[in-house]
């Protein structure tokens, strides 16, 4: 996901003057809305056998919203083709980022998403904080102590003071 995003801005950079990023966005959204309206909505929204009124249908609102998105993305696509794109200086910021930096970020997300219960709130908190500190190339040891102290303090606060349970970690039990 992140990778394609970065590519998108590079494409815009190179084809500056020809292709408006809004048109690209519009085209993607037209495709998404189309798939939603003609495949997902009919397949995954079940209609009851009988209804008192057609506006009561479970499909009514999702389809209304779907058509709204479809038509407006079409407008976005066309508008983008008519108008020349503008170049933004912000894109420069996203060039030449060390691969390790965003790989570590994705790894962090994955750890929280997949191993939160296994590692526990404290375990995953410490691991991810360390990874993300590494990603920013922090060198001071004292900062890494924070990566241990914060998850411990915060989860103890949640569990004991606020009575909000957090997982201990199935691996450690």
């Amino acid at each position: 996901m992140e990778k394609s995003e970065i590519n998108l801005s590079e494409v815009t950079e190179r084809s500056y003057g020809r292709l408006n990023p809004n048109s690209v966005l519009g085209a993607i959204l037209v495709l998404v809305a189309g798939i939603f309206l003609f495949y997902i909505a009919p397949t995954y929204i079940n209609e009851p056998p009988s209804m008192q009124h057609p506006l009561l249908s479970p499909r009514f609102l999702p389809q209304l919203a779907g058509w709204l998105v479809l038509l407006l993305s079409l407008a976005l696509l066309i508008e983008g083709l008519v108008r020349p794109p503008r170049h933004t200086a912000a894109e420069k910021l996203h060039e030449g980022i060390p691969v390790l930096r965003w790989v570590l970020m994705i790894a962090s997300g994955a750890i929280y998403m997949l191993f939160f219960e296994e590692l526990g709130a404290i375990g995953s908190g410490i691991l991810v904080s360390v990874l993300l500190f590494l990603a920013s190339d922090l060198r001071k040891v004292s900062i890494y102590l924070l990566a241990i102290v914060f998850p411990v303090v915060v989860s103890l606060l949640f569990v004991h003071l606020l009575n909000v349970p957090l997982p201990v970690g199935t691996l450690w039990e």
Binding site: F116, S136, A147, P151, S155, F158
Partner: peptide
């Protein structure tokens, strides 16, 4: 660089705590 990992941790704990669900 120090703040965001901690913010992320709070967000994860908070999101989990709403329904106790990963």
């Amino acid at each position: 660089s120090i703040l965001l990992p901690i913010v992320l941790m709070f967000c994860v704990y908070g999101a989990y705590a709403v329904n106790n669900n990963t």
